[in-house]
Structures are given as C-alpha cells and as structure tokens.
Design a protein around this nucleic acid. Structure first.
Lengths: 246, 246
DNA sequence: TCCTAATGTTTCACCACATGAAACATGGTT
DNA sequence: AACCATGTTTCATGTGGTGAAACATTAGGA
C-alpha cells in the first residue's frame, strides 16, 4: 500500500466491533471474533477496554455483551438542531395523515442508505418501517432516488466497489436514473420487499444538494402502480417544503 | 503499576475523545488535545480514524468536529426491551399528571448519576430537566437515594476517589443516609440548583436491588418542605409498581 | 502590506505496546 | 470421564502507535 496509514488500527477494530451490535444486540466473544476476523485474545482485550469505558456491558444472565450506557449518553448529545429526523417529523406526519400510508426518510451513508425517521400508517394492514435500519442502495424507490441525484463522482465510487447486482453501466440502468431525474421521483413495486410498493422523492436543500430521500410505501393490495403516480405530486410538494427548512 | 494492563490504550483514548462531545457538541483539534491532555498529532490520527468510520464528522462551515451518524445508528440498536427509560415512561407521565411537577429518572453510572428519562411539568413556571445530563452524586435528593441504597463496597469506592465536598465519614452524613434508608425517601431544598426542591425514592426490582431513583421536583415557590413530605408516599407507591416491572 | 499567532497536517525515528499463538480455565453436553 | 466450546491469561515478537518537530494554512493585528 502506497498511501501512508494515518489511522489507528486498534481503534478501527474497536469501532468495527461496536458496529457489529447493529447486526445483533447480543454477541459473544468468539462470535465477534468471527464477524471481524480477528483472534479471540485480540477481541478480548478490545472488549475489556470497551467494557471498562462503559460502551458495552455484559448481560448478567447470558454472559454476552450488549451496548452500554455510554452509547446512549453520547446519542443524547447529538446536535438535534439541524437533525432532519426531528426537523421533518411534523411534515412526515401530515403526509401520513393525508395519504394514510407509512412515510420514511432516508439518508445515504457510504454504500448504504439509512432509515433515519419513519411514521407508520395506522391502517390495520400496513408496512412497518424500522428506524435505524441500514439498507442496500441498489433496490427500492428511495435507493434509486439517492443514486440518481448523487454526484457523478459518488456514483462512480458506488458502482465501483459495491457488489451491484447487475452491471450499472449496462445502459438500461443509466437510462432509468436519467428518467428519475427528469420526472423527479422514483417508484418500486415489490422490489426489495415482496408485497410492498413505494414512491420516493429527493429532498433538496437551498444549496441545491440532495440531503435525503422521502418515501411513502404500503402493501401492494392497496397500492397499485397508478396509486404510486398519484402519490408522487403530493410527495414532491411536501419534499419541497421540507427542503426549504435546511 | 502492578496489575498488568489488559486494555488497549489507543482505544481508551479514542473513547475518551468521543465522551468529550458530551461537554460540547462542537470541538476543534487542539481543544480536544487540551481536554484529554494529549499531543495534537496523536489526537489528529485518532480523529481521522473516528471520522473515517463515521463516528465524528467535520462541520463544513466551522471545520470543527461533531458526533456522526454512526453514533446515532448505534443508539437505535440499544436493546429497548428492558430499558427503564421506555419501560417507566407511562408511570412517570401518570405521576406528572397527578402531582403536576417534573418527574425524572436517574441511574447511577460510576461516580455520577445520569438522568435517563424526564417528563416535564406543564405548568408555566416549571423545572426543566434535560435527558442525558450527567450530574454529581454528592448533591440532590436523587443522589442521596442512590448513595444510601448502594452496596457498602460501592459506597466505599465512591467516598474514596471522589472529590466529595465534605468528609462523608463525618458521622452526620452517614446518619443522614441511615435515615433515608429507614423512611424510604430523600428530599432536597435548593441543594444542587437554587430555586429548586425535590423528593426522590429508590426503584427496587424483584431481586431487591436498587435499579434507579425516581424524583419529583419543582420551583421552591410552589413546593415547600411540607409539600415534599406529602409527595413522598405517592412517589413510593409509583416506584413500587415500577419495581415490579423489572 | 508584513508579521505574528493559532490552528491543522505531515514526517520521522524510536521503542512501547498491541498482537496472535498457545497454554490455561471453566462450564455445559454426550 | 472425555469432550467441546466458550472465555481468560501469558508471553515473545516486531509492528505500528507515539510525540517532537517541521510544515502548511489561515486569521488577525499593527
């Protein structure tokens, strides 16, 4: 490797360990060692450190590790002022009340997207969206929006080292992205999740940068492709208003 | 030092850096270096690592660091099932409605206490309690409860390396703790915060361990010492119910 | 305008310290 | 008991983290 390392390996590993707890909330030592491919004893030392600092705790019963109080404490000190998750919540609730379906808000984070906020439909049969979920960028309406409106450099990087299902430079995919940019929204029909359909639009801030993707989704029994296209203008109007806030 | 170190220094430092963001939400490099007493370049390498992993981000405008998305993502994966902060919330709201004052929930964490939940009084003049705040263990009604019901070993450790304001083994303090254990609640009158008064009781789980402290607090204009003692039985009943849940 | 100070960044030689193999301990299962 | 799967500790090795110092960049002050 040519570029000199200006990061600290031990810290990288410790942070990787922490992120393992997004996969499972309770992990054993060897389990972690397997996940990040390190020797038991190395993981053990790192875990002792994390435990001593309160970032993980050992469950009294199972002897396994789980995330600790310090993680929670840190999260309370995240700057809330410009946080889209709280800023857009009222608008998302209005949208839910108007369309009657689950509304989600996504951020692009590296090669994934992150559901940072969701308000659930209150109909009996509904799509339940989990806040904090990390999802792939290659399927789903919101993914297509986030990719379509990403900068060309970001797109290149995404296509490069991501295990994209089909060749993105196959022309057809690029044409689809172009179409999304033109009409301003993307749809998906049983694309990531069987039985679910969605429309998504970008939220553009005043600098013209796409800050997030807003989507409405529900069960295919209630939502046809026609419905998706009917929802689109309503979503775009809401997204426009939200974009003015940041 | 006799006991061999079985922790990783670099990771300890990185975690210390993260915890600095509970003091201020925006920090510069030299600022951090000053806080944890390390060389600039060392902090710089650690920050690069934290940034690359998404645990901190640089504010585009100020060039300073703030907590990143990964912290938030982690926090959404904290196991909510047995979390007192969500478990006790309904009970705390009922208590607030009944007494009309701000209700807080505290956990002991090391040599401090942590406000992990709060429901605000809806009166015009009220005490506003910030969730996530780290407070000292040597003043306030909740502190006295947490100390009084701590195990003797924990108490020893607390008195030892904590900068306690007055000698705790001075007899008077110990007698006060004994009294709190006897009657089951503690009060404070403009003790930590001028103009504020509070009552606190322990929440005891079915194993007989004190899991948390529950307090009701408000402005001295509305709350006399008599009021505190009137509140106490109501609080104790609520705390008893909560204790049965865990 | 130049000078100074303060901040962030990179380089580098040293040797502390993180590392992983292996031995050890523990508890559960057959 | 013998086994296996966990977690824990020890220890020699040399990698990789460290901090001093040099460098870069910007802001302000005279």
């Amino acid at each position: 490797m040519e570029d000199r390392k200006l990061t600290v390996r031990a810290v990288e590993r410790a942070l990787d360990i922490l992120m393992c707890f997004t996969k499972s909330s309770e992990l054993g030592l060897t389990e972690i060692a397997g996940l990040i491919d390190l020797h038991k004893s190395t993981v053990h030392r790192l875990m002792t450190t994390l435990e001593e600092k309160g970032f993980v705790v050992r469950d009294a019963a199972t002897e396994k590790y789980r995330l600790g109080l310090k993680v929670w404490e840190l999260s309370t000190h995240l700057s809330k002022s410009d946080d889209p998750a709280v800023l857009f919540l009222p608008g998302m609730e209005r949208l839910r009340d108007r369309l009657g379906e689950t509304v989600s808000l996504y951020l692009r984070d590296g090669k994934d997207r992150l559901r940072i906020q969701a308000v659930q439909s209150n109909q009996a049969i509904r799509r339940v969206a989990q806040v904090g979920a990390r999802l792939p960028l290659y399927v789903g309406a919101s993914s297509k929006v986030l990719v379509a409106f990403a900068s060309p450099e970001d797109q290149q990087e995404l296509f490069l080292d991501s295990e994209w299902p089909e060749m993105p430079d196959s022309g057809a995919y690029m044409r689809m992205l172009e179409e999304i940019r033109e009409r301003g929204y993307a749809t998906s029909f049983e694309e990531r999740e069987p039985g679910a359909a969605a429309v998504a639009v970008p939220i553009v801030n005043r600098s013209g940068v796409v800050a997030a993707a807003l989507s409405v989704s529900g069960p295919v029994g209630r939502i046809s492709t026609d419905t998706l296209h009917e929802f689109a203008p309503v979503l775009m109007e809401a997204a426009h208003e939200m974009g003015l806030m940041i």
